[in-house]
Design a binder for these strands. Structure first.
Lengths: 251, 251
DNA sequence: TAGTGGTCTAGACCACCGT
DNA sequence: CGGTGGTCTAGACCACTAA
């Protein structure tokens, strides 16, 4: 490692890759391969430094970046742990809906409407980087806040990655959906991009949400990615925004 | 500085403040006081280290955090500069509207509808931490994208901070609004929080946007803050989201 | 070529956690 | 107490920019 790509004296192409980024790549590989599983601790900084033949500070900077991306979690005095969706803290990283006073919505309850396999529509296939008409799973559900239906979700998943997913299994599971994906299917959501629009409730979805057709709804279109920027979920959420709103921090 | 709060041997209350945070506070004070103005370079890391009597690495970590908050901008080989809203890069930090293909919207044109002084409504006063009925400035404008009106903005500002702001002055200025606030009024927006909802266009705003009353609009309510978490702007944007959408990255 | 930020090291010590 | 992450230092060297 010490001599691999350092000191870019020779005519190089890849511009330059500092040591700590190479360490970061090694750590990422370990996460991706499952060498360290979600929730577990990775080796200490000193041990990793020894293993990779670099100084502790270099390992530290690599871990710093991974912690900044929420792939690792540092806990002073205890160690560094692999990020997981089974935590209080991680819950609201992807759920941006807040109650009126700004606090996190309390009892959000999920009701699965259906879960069925089908061939991917072209727009979904495109976003999931699948061949057109490849198998996908469509999950539909309603999230209720304070007993009132507030969000209608359509969730599209690559069929090849989510074999055995069923409405029963979804209904039985309580907790964050991404937690289930992580432990049951070994797929960890890393990041997502969202597009928000205002649309009118159509005749099909209005009854599910208990509103009139034509009511303005906040449409949140999300594409979620796992390692390697691989898209693994398309989600369309139709939200009634009278008691909830979408919260965002700009900085 | 070297002996100030370091070595928490004595029974302390404030838990613990590392040296680099104290340096960060000193730098922030310099920014706030105008010792270094937007766009200018601050002293080099070594010079600051000398001035504060700490090592370069400690100054570096302080600057790292400030750069992470977009208060400073590092440019390798050139120096570290005070962040400003007069840049290409900073433009889209607060403007999250994107065109269909995801790219940044090209020619967005602003038309000022009016700019008038009034007493703050209670909700606005509350968000701006003003006494009720204190003076505020209300600016209304329409942003057009590709020649079509797409966003109707209502912008509320504390009257005491924005003396002399007028429709003419706003119309004469081309470029980002926060750039004008920065150079003309010495107020630099640091961060903002937004709440998004879907609403129906009312009779008053529909004509300005060229839509029917009842059309779903994306309502973006923003509160902007300057140093010390002081709120200095409330903005309500009503967006037609057929050719534009609100873009967000979750990680 | 001089000056700036960026990387890397080695070592010391501190704060925090569990036992 | 021992182990972990967190801070701080001093110094060397590299990459980038501008003159």
């Amino acid at each position: 490692m010490t001599e691999s790509t350092r000191g870019n004296h020779r005519a190089e192409a890849p511009t330059f890759s500092p040591l700590y980024r190479q360490i970061k790549a090694l750590l990422t590989r370990g996460l991706q391969s499952g060498e360290w599983k979600p929730g577990e601790a990775i080796p200490s900084e000193t041990e990793l430094a020894l293993r990779f033949g670099v100084s502790q500070g270099t390992v530290r900077k690599a871990i710093d970046e991974l912690a900044g991306e929420n792939l690792l979690i540092r806990r002073q005095g205890r160690g560094t742990f692999v990020g997981t969706h089974h935590e209080e803290k991680a819950q609201f990283r992807f759920l941006r809906l807040r109650a009126e006073h700004g606090g996190e919505p309390g009892g959000m309850e999920s009701r699965i409407l259906d879960c069925r396999r089908m061939r991917a529509p072209v727009d979904i296939a495109k976003r999931l980087l699948l061949r057109s008409a490849e198998a996908v799973v469509l999950v539909r559900r309603v999230l209720s806040f304070e007993g009132r239906p507030s969000v209608l979700d359509e969730i599209w998943l690559p069929g090849a990655l989510f074999r055995g997913l069923s409405a029963d299994r979804l209904s039985a599971y309580s907790g964050p959906l991404y937690g289930l994906f992580e432990t049951e299917f070994g797929i960890r959501m890393i990041r997502a991009t969202e597009r928000l629009r205002a649309v009118a409730a159509d005749k099909a979805s209005a009854p599910e949400l208990g509103v009139e057709a034509g009511t303005p709804l906040l449409l949140v279109e999300r594409v979620s990615y796992t390692y390697q920027d691989r898209p693994v979920e398309v989600r369309r959420g139709y939200c009634v925004t009278d008691r909830l709103h979408y919260h965002n921090e700009l900085s």
